[in-house]
């Protein structure tokens, strides 16, 4: 029963990640999708090697995707609203600040994920 529940949770998390990617591509833009793909690639190849259950890591990954989706959505909305209020010049300002703000959530979420996974490593060391 426990095994089945775990599998179900894994499938749910994986579905959430895929849905986020589809939503990013269909509802926001290609840039957001690529950012999410880069985040997923880094996360799966690096953080998945750390101590901790797969579901915990998948949970964090799906949460990261949701945060990334909302982050990009808010910034795209800001860009659209800014352009309609201040004119096209706002898009230039947005593009200039884009390299600084776009990845901010990735780095913050990365450090948060590592901190959340650290107890598993420490418990292993003490044990």
């Amino acid at each position: 029963m426990q095994f089945k529940n775990n599998r179900l949770i894994t499938i749910l998390f994986a579905e959430a990640i895929v849905l986020c990617l589809i939503a990013a591509f269909r509802l926001i833009n290609l840039e957001t999708t690529v950012t999410l793909l880069i985040f997923n690639m880094l996360f799966t190849t690096v953080i998945f090697q750390l101590k901790g259950s797969v579901n915990r890591k998948l949970g964090l990954l799906s949460m990261g995707n949701i945060i990334g989706l909302f982050w990009s959505y808010i910034f795209c909305s800001l860009s659209a609203a800014g352009a309609s209020v201040f004119g096209e010049g706002f898009n230039v300002v947005y593009a200039i600040f884009y390299p600084f703000v776009n990845f901010m959530w990735v780095v913050s979420f990365w450090s948060l994920s590592l901190a959340l996974l650290a107890p598993a490593k420490n418990a292993d060391t003490e044990g």
Binding site: V107, S111, L117
Partner: peptide, 13 residues
């Protein structure tokens, strides 16, 4: 992480 520096990780951004 490998050094077990949990609190320091929050400063990475």
């Amino acid at each position: 992480y490998l050094d077990g520096r949990t609190r320091l990780q929050f400063l990475i951004p």
